[in-house]
Nucleic acid binder design. Structure first.
Lengths: 187, 187
DNA sequence: CATGAAAGCTGAATAGGCTCAGATTTGAAG
DNA sequence: CTTCAAATCTGAGCCTATTCAGCTTTCATG
């Protein structure tokens, strides 16, 4: 992870990792079955922490649908570069798309699904509090929200120049548009 | 393209392509700067045709927001496996995420943006016809729609077992949810 | 200690994308 | 038909992820 962060995912060779760990190349492969596996270990760490922080917000969300969603999403975004760089995210995303049947691809998809589920649960909770129109189904709504926020995150990760602030601003626009559709009276 | 479709993107070596074309490996690289470039040529062909077909629908969309959107999206999905297989799509998506600064990554992003724009323009057109709430901004709405439909397409491409019918059904659910939010009276 | 199987380690070898120095072909000019 | 420069082609060689046959260490048992 240190090596990837410092030199980038692609420039780092397995031989470099092996050297840092003072073992042979073969030994690295005894513990991680591919180079992508090394990366996915970090992705898992990152997302598990984000999910845990998200649960804390779910337990007691701020008042108002838009504010509550904003809180959760900003949390996601703020934490996203804790362990991974944008380049590492790109590599991880590429692996998960290219090899969906492999353990790594599946793990990434599973983490994604858990994030989407967390958003959907927040929507359901807001609906129970009367802050989302009662006639809407929180599941597809949560998924639409997550798709949008995820697409923005992908755009953020693709563009090295884009700041987290710009990402948050874009997400705010989207959340505002969705909130206008979701909230009951003031719609 | 023929080779990729028959044997899969990864199993085909540049040497194979060179043989089929009766030239050397080096000559292939004179015309396509990477293996991904060969693939992206096909992606471009596919998406350009989809965009052209989409313009025809934009010119005279069916009555009703949901029906019009369904028509455009189904067109997209129906055409998506004309030249590319799911595996080829996965490889192309991986390339576009992993290397956003390269010509290929940029080209893919541009095609994506043009599709999103087409959806947004359809929303604007429907709004002009009074089939979408007049207080909504068609641009972010179109983008949210496209993000959703694109996410469904990615899920489709990831799962070899998923049929186009299942994809359409999932899209219908999403469109139905969005239409309920977007349409004026019947909400 | 001795033993032997299980666990762990090793790095040379393999495979395939990509490069580049040199060979070949083309085509305009004489 | 020559000549020569530009365009094109070539494939051996480089690089790095990944494999695997064999070597070493560990450790429970006698």
């Amino acid at each position: 992870m240190r090596r990837f962060r410092r030199d980038g995912y692609h420039p780092v060779r397995i031989e470099d990792v092996a050297e840092d760990a003072a073992v042979s190349v073969g030994t690295v492969y005894n513990y991680y079955s591919t180079k992508g596996d090394l990366l996915m270990a970090t992705v898992t760490l990152e997302v598990e922490e984000v999910l845990a922080a998200g649960e804390a917000i779910l337990a007691d969300p701020p008042a108002g649908a838009e504010a509550a969603l904003r809180r959760l999403i900003w949390q996601y975004y703020d934490h996203s570069l804790e362990y991974l760089t944008k380049e590492m995210w790109r590599a991880a995303m590429a692996i998960s798309i290219e090899a969906p049947h492999t353990p790594n691809g599946r793990r990434y998809a599973e983490l994604d699904a858990r994030l989407a589920d967390q958003v959907a649960r927040l929507v359901a909770r807001l609906q129970a509090r009367g802050e989302v129109r009662p006639d809407l189904d929180p599941r597809p709504l949560g998924e639409i929200l997550f798709h949008m926020l995820n697409a923005l995150f992908v755009a953020f990760v693709r563009d090295d120049a884009m700041t987290i602030e710009a990402l948050k601003a874009a997400a705010d626009d989207g959340l505002c548009a969705m909130a206008a559709l979701m909230t009951p009276a003031g719609g």
